[in-house]
Design a protein around this nucleic acid. Structure first.
Lengths: 229, 229
DNA sequence: ACCTGAACACCGTTCAAGT
DNA sequence: ACCTGAACACCGTTCAAGT
């Protein structure tokens, strides 16, 4: 997803130029400025820990004029939308991959789904904040974003219903409500982490992933009908 | 907490001037500019729905020069800290008041605590976002913020331990973990609301409070040991 | 003691002009 | 077709100068 010239621009892979067309070196006039802006913005966000990156600084780092990005993005929100889309695709791929490796029981796949979401949020905290807060871009303007999110949401509801009919999950609560409850808990855990609230709860950054996964496991186990796991 | 001249400046309460000292009308040179800045910033945030308000716009609305607020706030973050402190005091007062009116059983007081938190977040969505995201101010630099948050957190853990020893809550999970789980769920619900994610889950803005309270109730009931409520 | 208003270094965004 | 660079209207912040 990240283009090859990014590797070159960081001077980490001396052989990267072999894989590039020679005539596009240090020139973004041939159709790849769009991706360069996205990659550099992501890089900048990861470095600073702030999802609110400046288009001017992106342009500066790429070595292009301040107005150039506006050839490829209508405004700041459009760039943020593109970044949010890439991050959401990563979530979707992660979820799909992990689901294939999960034990088949619906309640275990539900647990796996939660773990995937947590891992995604903790691995890409800045992207997660951008995507989830939805203040720097127009969520409803992106069909891709909507469809990826709906897919994850529908998978959650479906797994809850399956786990209920498999007798592993309480069935005295509507599946939609149970799904929202689980999602809220997982979302809340991820947000407490990126919002820096876990320190107050005695959870250091090193232990965050392990601790949150254990907390999610306790939640799911608490809602099991057949207690033995 | 809001000063009287704010009511006057909105022209909604024609008798407000009776309650003011006459010689301070339209003059902020006598020690009340600080509070005026806080009140106007809060007002602006509530109107726009954006917690990231501009100091220049606040000054403009008050009718003061752009540099004036810097007499009372070291920088933008210091103003945000003051706003966050006021919002957190409101949470603390709300929690204390509701606890006094709650049924005495620890598990019911835990439920009440969750409802208070939800009500606070839904009543002041912009303040909640400011306070919780912690990106526009320095949380650790405010002893008041830290102490209010610690008080709510400690109350949560204490109530969980009490509910466990009263036999109403599963005791096979460490109280700190159970408390973090409940807090994450409630925090996640509140954030899903202010982040505009509830629409995707079939919950309209009108039904949000009722639906989230019911979801929280389902969570607590799911963790009861004595099922009958 | 408190506020003014110009100044500085930043933004996002637009647009004629260049290649 | 794509980018430059000046321009405009905004920011936060500083500070000499005023009252």
């Amino acid at each position: 997803m990240r283009s090859a010239y990014i590797a070159q621009s960081t001077h980490c892979q001396p052989f990267a130029e072999d894989t590039m067309p020679n005539d596009t070196t240090r020139r973004y006039h041939h159709g790849n400025l769009r991706q360069a802006v996205i990659d550099t913005a992501l890089q900048l966000a990861d470095e600073s820990g702030d999802e609110r990156i400046s288009l001017r600084e992106v342009a500066r780092r790429i070595g292009v004029s301040s107005g150039a990005p506006f050839r490829h993005f209508a405004d700041h929100a459009a760039l943020m939308t593109a970044i949010a889309e890439e991050a959401t695709v990563r979530l979707r791929l992660m979820v799909d991959r992990d689901q294939h490796q999960s034990p088949p029981a619906a309640i275990e796949r539900l647990r796996t789904l939660g773990h995937s979401f947590l891992a995604w949020a903790l691995q890409h905290p800045t992207s997660f904040r951008l995507v989830s807060a939805r203040r720097l871009y127009d969520f409803n303007a992106s069909p891709a974003l909507k469809s990826h999110f709906q897919a994850v949401r529908e998978r959650t509801v479906t797994l809850v219903m399956q786990a209920q009919s498999e007798g592993d999950l309480q069935h005295d609560v509507a599946p939609e409500r149970l799904a929202l409850m689980l999602r809220s808990a997982v979302y809340g855990m991820a947000r407490m982490h990126v919002d820096g609230q876990l320190a107050q709860w005695g959870v250091g950054p090193r232990a965050a992933r392990r601790e949150l996964q254990a907390t999610l496991d306790a939640l799911i186990d608490g809602f099991r009908r057949n207690r033995p796991r």
